[in-house]
Amino acid sequence: MRYAMAVDTKKCVGCSDCVVACQTENNVPIGFCRDWVVEVMAGTYPQLEIEIRSERCNHCANAPCVRCCPTGASYFSDGGIVLVDPKKCIGCGACIASCPYDARYPHPEGHVDKCTFCHHRIKNGLKPACVAVCPTKCMYFGDLDDLNSDVSMVLKKRKYKTLIPEAGTKPQLYFLI
């Protein structure tokens, strides 16, 4: 099993509903976010192109955060989901410094926090909160090993990219372009 997510940059309008849904679902402390929207405007006026991406932890297959963690608090859960065990986390910040996507943040309670792919929801057959609420249905989630999953199907049909693959992290968040 290999969980992954695909975000359609052509459909995303940058409404930030995914951000609010995540904050609500996961009780994210005020002032922090586990997912966020990035807008990249590129070109020369008036020939401009805009790309809107809903970003979060990439649940990398070669995750530097898991490698750097001195206590094993950051670990690979089933399906390659990268999770943090708050009872093992000492809050040293090594994983935060190791993430090229800066997807982690220090939770005010002391431990490190990040996107979990809504592990508690997918266990019960639900989609992650961000995917479930997206008004343009621009996000796809599922198991890459299952060729009929939403994410496998869309990655078969569309062109896609990952973020800074040259960092060697093997990210599992795909952006349809």
């Binding site: 966020w36 990035v38 590129a42 070109g43 910040g93 935060i96 800066d102």
Partner: peptide, 21 residues
């Protein structure tokens, strides 16, 4: 050709640049 990146993320100690240590 220019590129402007706007991020909606403003996590304390992470943005605008890492400041964890």
């Amino acid at each position: 050709k220019e590129e402007i990146i706007v991020s909606g993320r403003m996590n304390q100690m992470i943005d605008p640049h890492l400041n964890i240590w």
